[in-house]
């Protein structure tokens, strides 16, 4: 059965997929508990602008989308702080605005291509060796950042007012969290696809929450659920010739339903 690992592209897909599976819920949990779940989707659509720029300029799209998403995330947070636009409308603005800009950029260049579809829905055949280096390095950075900031992110998520009163730099932490989310989104794009990244950051977390565990154990459970979804999704995607992103998210959804059912009396 494990004959599939004789192909280099499959090995790369599993490495990138596993790294993605670990970091997506690490950031996702803080978005979920702060009622910011749509942020992941918004950043994903904005990062599509980065993909378009990458396709036009022939730079690595993972890299260009990373830069675009980070820049956009800082603007989103600044706008939210300024309170000129309601929090939720900012997300809608960037979500559709990002998609519109990406579509215009893409049609300006070559028009839609198969290549683009793989970015939208994820593909296990497109992960390059360079992608692995980028995803590997940045994953380690995100892991370190979450370990360093875990207690602080917990406190601002629980109660922002208490965090300010305790002297934490809540503004900086908020910007950092959203930048980390932007980075995670760009990294997950290869495997899960722009349109489905939000799901991988959010669904394992809300499934884990059903088990009514401590915050830390919820986090670990979410990572386990995410890993199961991605790894089984990649197998299914290879053997049944399905788009990897969709398969992964459907499996995550099934796990969510199961966790709802087995915890219904808790």
């Amino acid at each position: 059965m494990l004959g599939i690992f004789q192909y280099d592209f499959i090995v790369r897909a599993f490495i990138a997929g596993s790294l993605t599976a670990i970091i997506a819920p690490l950031i996702g949990i803080f978005l979920v508990v702060r009622r910011y779940s749509l942020m992941a989707d918004t950043l994903a659509h904005v990062s599509l602008v980065g993909v378009a720029i990458g396709l036009i300029t022939n730079l690595n799209p993972v890299f260009t989308s990373l830069v675009t998403a980070v820049v956009a995330s800082v603007i989103v947070e600044r706008l939210r702080e300024s309170k000129k636009v309601f929090g939720e409308s900012i997300l809608a603005l960037f979500l559709s605005g990002g998609l519109a800009l990406a579509v215009v950029l893409i049609s300006l260049s070559h028009g839609f291509s198969v290549n683009l579809v793989s970015y939208l829905f994820g593909s296990i055949t497109t992960v390059s060796a360079l992608d692995i280096y980028i995803i590997g390095t940045v994953s380690i950075f995100i892991l370190a950042a979450v370990m360093a900031l875990y207690k602080r992110l917990f406190l601002i998520s629980f109660n922002e007012e208490l965090a300010v009163a305790n002297g934490l730099n809540v503004r900086a932490l908020n910007i950092l969290l959203i930048v980390l989310a932007a980075i995670t989104v760009s990294l997950s794009m290869r495997i899960v696809g722009v349109l489905l990244i939000g799901a991988l950051m959010i669904i394992p977390v809300i499934s884990a929450i059903q088990f009514k565990l401590s915050f830390f154990r919820t986090l670990i459970t979410a990572v386990v659920i995410s890993l199961i979804s991605v790894i089984s999704g990649l197998f299914a995607s290879y053997y049944l010739n399905l788009a990897s992103g969709g398969t992964i998210v459907v499996i995550a959804l099934i796990i969510f339903c199961v966790s709802l059912i087995i915890n219904r009396n808790k």
């Binding site: 900031l149 207690k151 602080r152 917990f154 629980f158 109660n159 007012e161 929450i209 401590s214 830390f216």
Partner: peptide
């Protein structure tokens, strides 16, 4: 506790210990 909604997944111990968060450094 306005932000503390019924679904906030944290134990009493985790919340009490967050009272010492700001006293420590990163990675503490």
């Amino acid at each position: 506790l306005s932000q503390l909604d019924v679904n906030f997944p944290a134990t009493v111990y985790e919340i009490v210990s967050s009272g010492r968060t700001a006293l420590g450094n990163l990675f503490h």
